[in-house]
């Protein structure tokens, strides 16, 4: 199942920031990770991922570096900046509050007490 565009627009950047918080990643790696780790819910193609990455880069939330990989090919690796970390933290708190709100009105099921 794929998310609607509006939902993806809100969730996508936070998901990418979260993935990059663990370690730096290149574009295809991100696509794969998003697809597999979210069971396809947050799967996105190149048309969505790369503009999103460029936007995050423009906002100084991530930074990019071209580097040669082990297979000898050049890849552009993205990593989180200090500003990106703060943003991720704020986004995660916002999502937690949203989650609680959704639980409270019964959209989501709450964790058993």
């Amino acid at each position: 199942m794929k998310l609607e565009r509006e939902l993806m627009r809100g969730a996508g950047p936070t998901a990418v920031l979260k993935l990059l918080s663990k370690h730096e990643m290149y574009g295809y790696e991100l696509v794969e990770a998003l697809s597999k780790q979210t069971d396809g819910v947050l799967a996105m193609g190149q048309s969505t991922l790369y503009p999103m990455l460029y936007n995050l880069e423009a906002k100084d939330l991530i930074e990019a570096n071209w580097r040669s990989a082990a297979n000898g090919r050049d890849r552009k690796y993205y990593s989180l900046t200090g500003k990106g970390k703060k943003k991720l933290k704020a986004d995660m708190e916002a999502w937690a509050r949203l989650n609680e709100a959704m639980v409270s009105i019964g959209v989501l099921k709450g964790a058993p007490a």
């Binding site: 290149y26 574009g27 295809y28 696509v31 190149q46 790369y50 090919r73 050049d74 890849r75 552009k76």
Partner: peptide, 15 residues
């Protein structure tokens, strides 16, 4: 952009 899309495609082919 092209450089990045080439890298992406080559990664996909490799996969």
């Amino acid at each position: 952009i092209v450089r990045e899309l080439i890298a992406h495609t080559q990664d996909a082919i490799e996969a």
